[in-house]
């Protein structure tokens, strides 16, 4: 554990808190991509299978929080707030993301065991799971400020893992190329968003695409 990893995990928790807070206070899930949320649940369920055979207080608690909160968000989106979700603007073709992640996971896992292949699948899928959400923002051309805070916090989480990996490599020669490559891709996908978030939202203007 180091400060970058801890900060990354805190940003992840903050992003979930912002999302649930936004939905429950506005009683609406408008602007939130159901497809991205469903992909995140798939990511957590396939990555955290090791909950069944490994236990570490910090990691196991966080894993349960991520799976539980993700399922709760999907429950809100399919139950109480379903009327506020507009499937017509949430049209990204997620089958290509799932298919691509599955192919990469089958070709290059660290070991060909079901758990390792699913873990690798989750790493690749997470790197692109935000695309339906970004696509939705792009389609509508604007986003509520609270939604932009959510996307920022979620992006900051994996971005902060990058200095964590550099730190771990320098201090203990920890090296996990799969996580690192996927994490860098994930951060790059956010970079446009980060730029607009920084130049607009943080200066008190509305998030609108140029």
């Amino acid at each position: 554990m180091n400060i970058f990893r801890l900060a990354g995990d805190l940003f992840h928790l903050i992003s979930i808190f912002i999302l649930i807070h936004k939905m429950t206070t506005s009683k609406s899930c408008s602007g939130i991509s159901f497809k991205s949320q469903a992909l995140y649940l798939l990511v957590y369920v396939t990555r955290y299978l090791d909950l069944f055979w490994t236990f570490a207080l910090y990691n196991s608690t966080m894993k349960i929080i991520f799976i539980g909160s993700s399922a709760y968000v999907l429950h809100l989106m399919t139950g109480p707030f379903k009327p506020t979700h507009d499937p017509n603007i949430d049209t990204f073709k997620v089958r290509y993301l799932i298919g691509g992640a599955a192919i990469l996971a089958l070709l290059f896992p660290y070991k060909w065991t079901p758990a390792e292949v699913l873990w690798t699948f989750s790493i690749w899928l997470e790197s692109v799971a935000i695309l339906p959400q970004l696509f939705m923002v792009q389609r509508t051309g604007a986003a509520e400020t609270i939604t932009t805070h959510y996307i920022f916090a979620l992006g900051a989480y994996r971005a902060l893992y990058i200095p964590n990996w550099i730190y771990r490599y320098l201090t203990s020669t920890f090296w996990d190329p799969l996580s690192i490559i996927a994490g860098v891709i994930q951060t790059v996908l956010y970079s446009d968003f980060f730029y607009i978030y920084y130049t607009k939202v943080l200066q008190g203007r509305k998030f609108e695409l140029p």
Partner: peptide
């Protein structure tokens, strides 16, 4: 330590 790679992260 490929076996342990990434498994102690989230």
């Amino acid at each position: 330590v490929v076996e342990e790679a990434g498994k102690d992260e989230l």
